[in-house]
């Protein structure tokens, strides 16, 4: 068979294409379960972190999630749980980042005065810049932060604001718009919760 003939060219191309797609679908199929499981674990973990529950690498996240949120109501904007005797309100948030959607979970004390925990689930911010909202130092700033009047995300350099009473956290150097977006998203979510919970009272 002549190597340069049209028939050979088409044949090889088609064979290659099929082979590659087949192999890839195998790899995809083999890992699909794991990927979905990972996604569920990331979400469950976010709820735990937002509720202020300590999460470490060895623990069974699913078991802990089920015991903390036995009556998970998918229709509701928030879930309540009790951590160390205190009631905590945990709510997933979704909002516009610089270019795409940022989602995560935030937890507040039942009087909505202080943030208990904050975790990012998905984002498409720039790696190394806006993407740093997913770094521990950034998220840890929210723990225990006084939020009655909303929070402010400060521009400029900062390695993490350790004062929980000033209602401020440090933004990300060089990513001022992502930082602003976080401020808007968090404050919006607190407002939504105030309306929902205020209505219940």
């Amino acid at each position: 068979m002549k190597k340069d003939s049209l028939f050979y060219t088409v044949l090889v191309s088609v064979v290659f294409a099929f082979l590659f797609v087949y192999l890839l679908s195998l790899a995809y199929g083999a890992t699909k379960g794991k990927v979905e499981e990972n996604q569920k674990l990331i979400e469950a973990r976010a709820y735990l972190v937002a509720a202020g529950i300590e999460v470490d690498n060895g623990m069974d996240i699913e078991a802990s999630f089920n015991s903390s949120f036995p009556n998970f109501d998918t229709e509701s904007a928030y879930q309540t749980t009790t951590v160390k005797g205190k009631s905590v309100v945990v709510s997933p948030f979704k909002g516009n980042g610089l270019w795409g959607t940022i989602t995560g979970v935030i937890g507040l004390t039942s009087d909505l005065r202080r943030i208990v925990g904050f975790e990012i689930v998905t984002h498409v911010e720039t790696p190394g810049l806006g993407g740093r909202i997913d770094e521990t130092w950034f998220k840890d700033q929210f723990k225990g932060e006084y939020a009655e009047k909303g929070i402010i995300v400060k521009h400029g350099a900062g390695g993490g604001d350790t004062d929980p009473d000033n209602g401020q956290v440090d933004g990300i150097t060089g990513a001022s718009r992502t930082s602003d977006a976080i401020q808007v998203i968090v404050n919006n979510q607190i407002d939504i919760l105030k309306k929902d919970l205020g209505g219940m009272n």
Partner: peptide, 18 residues
Amino acid sequence: IVDILLRAYLPEVSKSLG
């Protein structure tokens, strides 16, 4: 293949590299 492997076994890394 690299993308699939990262997503399955190193999801944090996959998230940050986008």
